[in-house]
Amino acid sequence: MAFSTQDSDEVLSEINVTPLVDVMLVLLVVFIVTAPLLTNSIPINLPKTEAVAPVEQKEPLVVSIDGDGKWFINKDAISPDLLQSNLQAAKAQNPDLRVQLQADDGTNYGQVAKAMAAIEKAGITKLAVITAR
């Protein structure tokens, strides 16, 4: 049998590099496997086009309700009862009518809901509710 001649009190000054080599080999395998996936592009010759002017859209109809409960269509004061009939007349002139609904911050939600119901009953499907940031 062979016995060690070194004293057990001495500090071992060698670094065990086996775990470091294992980790580096695993990282190398991971990079080898994932590298081809990063450059997976297909060369395509896309057609060339000319710039086209955007389609002209008509100004939307604006329905507003202020803080005092007054109703407006494009800054013209109206009665809440006449909103649906006015919107139906506007829709008859322009079948692709867009409506924007604006309401004051202090407006009762019941009035806003009533306006939305009148817009829906008038047959308008394009409604935008405008809020402040």
Rank of each mutant, 00 (worst) to 15 (best):
120 E>V: 00
49 T>Y: 12
63 V>L: 07
23 V>E: 01
77 A>Y: 02
37 L>A: 11
41 S>Y: 09
51 A>F: 11
131 T>K: 06
101 L>R: 00
47 P>V: 13
86 N>I: 04
43 P>T: 11
7 D>G: 12
125 T>K: 15
105 D>E: 15
106 G>Q: 11
65 I>V: 10
51 A>G: 09
114 K>E: 04
14 E>L: 15
66 D>E: 13
119 I>M: 10
35 A>C: 05
120 E>I: 00
98 R>N: 03
48 K>L: 07
54 P>Y: 09
122 A>F: 05
39 T>Q: 11
15 I>S: 11
47 P>C: 14
132 A>G: 14
9 D>H: 02
111 Q>P: 02
10 E>P: 00
107 T>N: 12
52 V>K: 06
104 D>I: 05
86 N>P: 01
106 G>Y: 06
124 I>F: 07
117 A>E: 15
129 V>T: 02
73 I>S: 02
13 S>R: 15
94 N>H: 04
29 V>L: 12
48 K>M: 06
128 A>Y: 09
103 A>H: 15
2 A>S: 09
115 A>E: 01
18 T>L: 14
109 Y>K: 05
98 R>Q: 04
127 L>N: 00
82 L>Y: 03
10 E>T: 08
6 Q>V: 08
50 E>R: 14
83 L>M: 09
83 L>K: 07
106 G>C: 01
42 I>K: 13
133 R>C: 01
115 A>T: 05
12 L>V: 12
49 T>W: 09
62 V>Q: 07
62 V>Y: 04
119 I>Q: 09
75 K>M: 01
44 I>T: 02
12 L>Y: 11
18 T>I: 15
44 I>Q: 01
51 A>H: 07
97 L>H: 10
24 M>F: 14
80 P>N: 10
16 N>K: 07
57 Q>G: 12
76 D>F: 02
88 Q>H: 10
64 S>M: 10
78 I>V: 13
58 K>G: 03
121 K>A: 09
106 G>P: 02
57 Q>T: 14
1 M>R: 08
131 T>I: 01
120 E>T: 04
64 S>E: 15
87 L>V: 07
59 E>I: 07
90 A>C: 08
74 N>D: 15
46 L>E: 13
107 T>P: 12
125 T>A: 14
54 P>T: 06
1 M>C: 10
74 N>F: 05
77 A>M: 07
102 Q>P: 00
48 K>Y: 03
85 S>R: 03
66 D>W: 15
69 G>K: 04
44 I>P: 01
33 V>W: 11
126 K>G: 03
58 K>V: 02
102 Q>F: 01
24 M>V: 14
